[in-house]
Simulated scan of single mutants.
Amino acid sequence: MAEPQPPRAARIAAYALFFLLGVAVSVCGSFVQALWPPVGVLLALAATAATFYAGLRVTGTRLGAGAPAAGWFLAMLLLMVPRPEGDNVLWSNATSLAWLFAGSVLGVICATLPTRTSWFPGVPGPPR
């Protein structure tokens, strides 16, 4: 009844790739959201949601959305720590907090979506 999943080795490679992609999206998004305050947060969140959703659809498992989310959270933890010189990447302002909160909500949403259905929720899949 369900579509076959990709081979195990391909899924493991995809998990590692999406973990690293989650780290990259987190680092880039942290700078983009600070660079263009109102639009940068939306752009960074769109890239984050696309990464999490792509991980879910490419691997066909919820771990596929969890791997980039784990990389995203790990990078966020490292970016939130102030440096000894007093430099911060993420400040305690509205855009940084929106980036942190909305990104984590997107990770949870994508990790709880159905795994092997059509590409868009609510759209019926192709006939079998």
Rank of each mutant, 00 (worst) to 15 (best):
Pro82Gln: 12
Ser118Ile: 00
Pro124Val: 14
Phe52Pro: 01
Arg57Val: 02
Ala44Asn: 02
Gly66Asn: 10
Leu74Tyr: 05
Glu3Gly: 04
Asp87Arg: 14
Leu43Ile: 12
Thr61Leu: 11
Phe18Ser: 02
Leu45Cys: 02
Met80Asp: 11
Ala13Ser: 11
Trp72Met: 11
Val39Pro: 00
Gly122Arg: 07
Arg62Phe: 07
Thr95Ala: 10
Arg62Met: 07
Arg57His: 10
Gly55Asn: 05
Val89Ile: 13
Arg8Pro: 00
Leu77Arg: 13
Ala70Met: 12
Phe52Tyr: 14
Gly40Lys: 07
Thr59Gly: 03
Pro68Leu: 11
Ala67Ile: 08
Pro121Tyr: 12
Ser30Ala: 15
Gly66Pro: 01
Arg116Ala: 06
Ala49Ile: 07
Gln5Ala: 11
Leu35Asn: 09
Trp119Phe: 13
Ala46Asp: 01
Ser26Gln: 13
Leu21Asn: 06
Arg116Gly: 01
Ser26Arg: 03
Tyr15Asp: 04
Trp36Arg: 04
Leu77Tyr: 14
Val23Ile: 15
Pro4Tyr: 04
Leu90His: 05
Arg57Trp: 06
Phe52Asp: 03
Pro6Tyr: 04
Trp36Val: 10
Met1Lys: 13
Ala67Val: 14
Val58Gly: 02
Leu106Ser: 05
Phe73Arg: 13
Thr59Ser: 05
Gly103Leu: 05
Ser92Ala: 14
Ser26Asp: 11
Thr51Val: 08
Val108Lys: 10
Ala69Ser: 11
Ala16Arg: 08
Ser118Met: 07
Glu85Phe: 10
